[in-house]
Amino acid sequence: MSQMLAVKTENLGRVYQIKRKRGESGPTTLVALEGVNLEVRQGELFGLLGPNGAGKTTLIKILTTLLTPTSGRAFVDGIDVVENPQEVRRRINMVSGGETCGYGLLTVEENLWMFTQFYGLDFKTARERIQYMLEVVGLADRAKTKVYHLSTGMKQKMNFARGFLNDPQILFLDEPTLGLDVQTSRILRDFVKRWVRERPGKTILLTTHYMVEADELCDRVAIIDQGRILACDTPANLKKRLQGASVFKLQTTPLDTLEHFKQLPGVTQFAGHRRNGHTELNFILEDENALVKVLDAVQAKGGHLLSLEKREPTLEDVFIHLVGRGLSDEESPPERIL
C-alpha cells in the first residue's frame, strides 16, 4: 500500500439498521455509504462536499474508529481502522461542529487540559498549545470560565480548539463552522488553511455543505450524495467540467410553477428557488443562445425580469450538474459571504 496516502477507502459501505415499531411500514435498512473509494494524500486539505444526509458524518465516524463499516475497508495513515483502532487514534483527532460538548463543571482550560493529558503532552507543551488555541478561537479571556456558562458557539469554539491540541497527523473536521457566525467561521477557515500549510505532511479531511468552504479552502474536493462519491478533483478541475457551458442567474417577479424550465431546449441544468418577493432561477445552458428561450418562457408565465447575471461556474453549479439539484435546501441559501 502506498505510504503517501493519509486516508484510503476500498469499496467502503455502511448500512444502518432502522428499528421499526410493530405495524410501522417502510424499509428496515438505510444505505448511508456505498462503494466509496477515496484516496486522500498526505499534506492535503481535502474536502467532502455534500448535502444533508449524504453520508459525510458516517464516513468520518468510520475513519475515526467510532463506527464499523458494513462492507469494504478503510485505512488511516496506512492502518486498518477496524483491525487496529488504537494505532489510528494515536495519530488523529476529530472535531464535529454544530454540537456542544464538554464537562460543564470544568473550566474551558481544564477541559482542554484533560485532553492534552490523554495524549500525554508534557505540562509545558500542553499549556502553550492551550493558550495558543484559545487565542486562535478567541476564548483566551474565557479560559477560567466554567463551560456551562459558555454560549453554544463558544462551546463549539472550545471543541474546535481541542481538535488541534495533540497536533494530529490527520485531522477530521466534520462541518467545523456549522452554526458559527460569519466572522468566526472565517477566522476558523483561515486558521485551518494556515495550520495545514505550515505543517508539511499534516492532513485535514473536512466535510461541509458550504460551497465556499470547499472551494476556497480545499486542495481537492469529493462530491458526495446519497452515500456515493460522484466526483473527486481540485475545485478548478471540477469547475472546468462545465467549461463552455453558460451559467446564468435570473431574478424575476414571483412565478407559480418552475417545472417547465427544466424541459426548455438548451437547458442542461436548472434549479429555482422562491425567495420572499421574487423568484431566483439558476441555469446551466449549453450555450448563450438558449437564454432567449428562457426569457421567452419567463414572459409567457407573466413574469418580469428583475436582474440577470452571467457567472463563472461555481462548485455548486458542478454539484447541480452532477446531482440534478442544489446543495442547499429551498429556503436557506448557502452562506456566501466570506
Binding site: 474508529t65 467510532l66 487514534r89 490523554f118 471543541n159
Partner: peptide, 8 residues
C-alpha cells in the same frame, strides 16, 4: 466520542 477518539 472524543474520549473514544483519543488514545485512552
Amino acid at each position: 466520542k472524543y474520549i473514544y477518539v483519543s488514545p485512552i
